[in-house]
């Protein structure tokens, strides 16, 4: 068990180190997030009260779009020198490899989200600090849903035609429940309403989604990697 997590960590550190040397995915993702935030300001009056009500939704659309850029790179990074072969050949389980890559993606996706969040708060006049701990919880759960589905599908789409388009096409419909939950919760939280009564069921759904899709991914990853 300890050996398993050590291997997970080795893969995570490897991915993060490789990414931070070039910062390709993170920079692209961050820039993209800012551009979308800008575009939304034309579509909706940013400081209007009604915009604040839908701001949770806007924020998660930004996260989903920007996150896909990070996730697309995850297995694509293994492509150029056939590095995936070496990882598959190494005596670590597919589950460890998957979790390692997922964790690295998680860190990167969260980093992008944490930078985008205050920018969003400033641009749209949203008091995102009002319910900070609960907002962080939703952010962590939502980002994991995005990451776990994105990572396994990144492995599915890595060597196919139109990879960049296929990943979001496959990921977003699957993510509908998770994104919807995160949007509902975030919209309440940034308007100062803590999670309570009716919104607790969204939190449960988000947790359930994370657990189910993590489990299914861990079961199926070996099939995806080796056939």
């Amino acid at each position: 068990m300890i050996a398993f997590f050590r291997q997970v960590l080795v893969v995570t550190v490897k991915d993060l180190r490789a990414e931070l040397r070039t910062k390709e995915a993170v920079n692209a993702s961050l820039a993209f997030a800012l551009v979308i935030l800008l575009m939304f300001s034309f579509a909706f009056d940013p400081l209007e009260e009604t915009t604040r009500e839908i701001s949770g939704g806007l924020l998660w659309i930004v996260f989903a779009f920007a996150g896909t850029l990070v996730l697309n790179r995850s297995f694509a990074r293994e492509q150029p020198n056939d590095c995936l072969d070496a990882l598959i050949a190494a005596p670590i389980s597919g589950a460890a490899l998957f979790l390692g890559k997922a964790l690295a993606n998680y860190v990167l996706v969260l980093a992008v989200e944490l930078v985008a969040l205050p920018v969003f708060g400033i641009f749209y006049g949203v008091h995102w600090t009002a319910q900070f701990p609960q907002l962080m919880l939703v952010l962590l759960l939502g980002a994991w849903a995005l990451t776990v589905v994105g990572t396994i599908f990144s492995a599915l789409t890595v060597n196919i035609r139109l990879r960049e388009v296929m990943l979001p096409m496959l990921t977003y419909p699957i993510l509908v429940p998770a994104l919807m939950g995160a949007m509902q919760l975030t919209a309440g939280l940034v308007n100062g309403k803590p999670i309570s009564g009716d919104t607790v069921s969204w939190l449960k759904m988000l947790i359930g989604f994370d657990v189910i899709f993590t489990a299914v991914s861990l079961v199926l990853v070996e099939t995806v990697l080796v056939g």
């Binding site: 490897k14 180190r17 490789a18 990414e19 040397r21 070039t22 150029p80 020198n81 056939d82 590095c83 072969d85 070496a86």
Partner: peptide, 10 residues
């Protein structure tokens, strides 16, 4: 294999 299977960024 055909590729060198080492990471360019490391």
């Amino acid at each position: 294999g055909h590729g060198i299977s080492v990471y360019d960024e490391l």
